[in-house]
Design a protein around this nucleic acid. Sequence first.
DNA 1: CATTTGCCTACTATGTCAATAGGTTAAACC
DNA 2: GGTTTAACCTATTGACATAGTAGGCAAATG
Lengths: 137, 137
Amino acid sequence: MISTKGRYAIRVLIDLAENDSGGYIPLKDIAARQGISKKYLEIIVKDMVGGGLLVGASGKGGGYRLCRKPEEYPIGEIIELMEGSLSSVACLADGAAPCPRAADCETLPLWAEYDRLTHDFFYGKRLSDLLKPGARA
Amino acid sequence: MISTKGRYAIRVLIDLAENDSGGYIPLKDIAARQGISKKYLEIIVKDMVGGGLLVGASGKGGGYRLCRKPEEYPIGEIIELMEGSLSSVACLADGAAPCPRAADCETLPLWAEYDRLTHDFFYGKRLSDLLKPGARA
DNA sequence: CATTTGCCTACTATGTCAATAGGTTAAACC
DNA sequence: GGTTTAACCTATTGACATAGTAGGCAAATG
């Protein structure tokens, strides 16, 4: 299951895209609009900055800003960053130790096929696909 | 992520299908073949009996047995039973309270579409699709 | 220098996961 | 009828993840 980290991250990006006016947007505003604890969002945006999804600026007039165009954010990248992996099973997750049963595991191909499906689905979707039709360019 | 409950349940069904000789198969044998703790498997098979995936028989000569033909077990049903839900997000899970943001949530359609994809994928696969080619009828 | 805002470490409550432990009932075999 | 085999049942545990909270430091603006 996708946790709040991944889901909130996407909502933050949507919020930034739809309220973009060229400058930085303070987290306080995002938290208020989205109805999410600002303190909790801090943790999430920190990871997003670290992962190159957005940039932050301290001080008065500071806040956060997208660092790409909305169509250059694959949803899969966002989820993968926040959840650690898109994989459906532990033995196929990113940093997982190889399973000793892998060679003759009868279920592995099933999970692998599903993982491909998932990967293709979420990398086929972009942030721009989630924005309201009337959202500013 | 699919937990051990769901993954082991599928392996139990595969084991029962591939070692079917008409009678009941004791859990001890399945545990030994699969390299899974028998005690832990007890919990899992109990849920499987409750969910109508297999039948158990106590006493000498007892054990477990499939109660359908392998092609009549959709993988989706197994996972749904063991994991509680196939859904990717809490707000679309089976017994979930409806989310107050649902009406204008910009991410909900994404999760809903992915859930449909997942559902179709796992209900399109059957236990019979996972058996070794040489497995007995 | 005061205000705004991001950034950082630490802490906590709750719940789930993956088992383990030990006992009770049920059926079959001799 | 007792012994064996096996399912069935309740309870408990350690480890870890989730979803936050709390408080203070650093940086930039005016």
